[in-house]
C-alpha cells in the first residue's frame, strides 16, 4: 500500500540554518502520526513546506499519488490537505460561522454572478452551509452552535481552538496537519479537544492526521506512530513507547551531550 503523504530528501534552509535536512517521511492512510522533536527542530517548517507556504530547496513531496512539490498553497488545499497554525490564526472580527466557512472554500460557489444576482440560490447554499457548520461545531461544543453569528474575538482559547479545528474539518480533508493544537490551553481542555477530534474521526475513518504536540501524554494516547525530528533530521520512528525509550531521542530532548 502506498503512503498518503510521502517526502523524499526534503530540504529547507534559512540562511545558515538547516530547518529540514534530507527528510524522508511517509504517512500511511488513516493513521495518526505524531511529529515530535525539540523546539526549532523543523516541525512547523515541515508543515509550511508541505502546504506551499515555503518552497523547498531540494527534495520531493507526493500526496495521494500526485507530485505536489512546491505547489501553491491553494492547490495543496484543493488536493485535500488542511493545516492549523501553531499560533491561533482566526479572523477575530469575523463570526464563528465565517471563520468556519472560509475553510470550505472549494465547496462554495464563488462565481460573481451567483453571489450578487442569484440571491435565492445563494440563500439555499447559505442555509446548507449553516447546517454543515452547526452539525460540526455541535460535536465540539453545542453552546457555540447557538452563537454562530457572534464575533470570535470575545471567545476563550479553548473555543478558538475548537473553531480552528472545525474550520479544518468542514471541507472533509484527506489529511489534517495539526500544529500544537494544545498551545495556550490547560491539561483538561487539551484532553477534551482531543476527544472531540477522535469523535469526528470515528465518523470519518478516512481522515489521516499528522499532529505536532509538546504534551507527550497526548502523543502517547492518540498516535499510532511517531517520527522524531532533531535539527531537521529524522532521528527515530516507531510507536511512541519505543521512540521514547530511544537513547538518541532522550539525548535530543534532554540536551545531554
Amino acid at each position: 500500500m502506498t503512503a498518503l503523504l510521502e517526502t523524499g530528501k526534503l530540504c529547507k534552509r534559512f540562511g545558515g540554518v538547516v530547518a529540514l535536512d534530507e527528510l524522508d517521511m511517509a504517512v500511511a492512510r488513516n493513521e495518526i502520526l505524531g511529529l515530535i522533536g525539540p523546539n526549532g527542530s523543523g516541525k512547523t517548517t515541515f508543515f509550511n513546506v508541505v502546504t506551499g507556504i515555503y518552497s523547498t530547496d531540494a527534495g520531493r513531496v507526493r500526496f495521494d499519488g500526485a507530485d505536489i512539490t512546491n505547489a501553491a498553497a491553494r492547490a495543496v488545499y484543493r488536493a485535500g490537505i488542511f493545516r492549523t497554525f501553531q499560533r491561533s490564526r482566526l479572523s477575530l472580527p469575523l463570526s464563528i460561522f465565517d471563520n468556519i466557512m472560509i475553510g470550505d472554500h472549494k465547496r462554495l460557489d464563488q462565481r460573481l454572478w451567483f453571489n450578487l444576482m442569484r440571491r435565492r440560490a445563494f440563500k439555499r447554499e447559505f442555509e446548507q452551509a449553516c447546517g454543515r457548520a452547526r452539525a460540526l461545531i455541535e460535536v465540539f461544543e453545542p453552546a457555540l452552535a447557538e452563537r454562530m453569528f457572534e464575533p470570535v474575538a470575545g471567545l476563550p482559547m479553548i473555543d478558538r481552538r475548537r473553531i480552528e479545528i472545525c474550520r479544518a474539518l468542514i471541507s472533509e480533508p484527506k489529511l489534517l496537519l495539526l500544529d500544537e493544537p494544545s498551545a495556550g490551553m490547560t491539561h483538561d481542555e487539551t484532553a477534551e479537544l482531543m476527544n472531540d477530534i477522535f469523535l469526528v474521526r470515528e465518523r470519518n475513518k478516512n481522515l489521516t492526521i499528522v499532529i505536532v504536540e509538546h504534551e507527550m501524554g497526548v502523543i502517547e494516547r492518540i498516535t499510532d506512530r511517531c517520527v522524531v525530528l532533531n535539527f531537521g533530521r529524522k532521528i527515530a520512528e516507531g510507536r511512541y513507547r519505543d521512540v521514547a525509550a530511544d537513547a538518541q531521542v532522550q539525548e535530543a530532548y534532554l540536551g545531554v551531550a
Binding site: 465565517d98 466557512m101 472554500h105 472549494k106 464563488q110
Partner: peptide, 30 residues
C-alpha cells in the same frame, strides 16, 4: 450591490485575505 457583495462568499473571501493573507491561501483562496 455593495451590500450583496459583503453578504456573500466573496465578501467573506475578501475579509479573510485582508485579515490574514497567508492563512487565506492555505484555505484555497486565489
Amino acid at each position: 450591490l455593495t451590500q450583496r457583495l459583503e453578504r456573500s462568499w466573496i465578501g467573506l473571501n475578501l475579509d479573510a485575505l485582508r485579515l490574514d493573507e497567508t492563512a487565506a491561501a492555505c484555505f484555497g483562496l486565489d
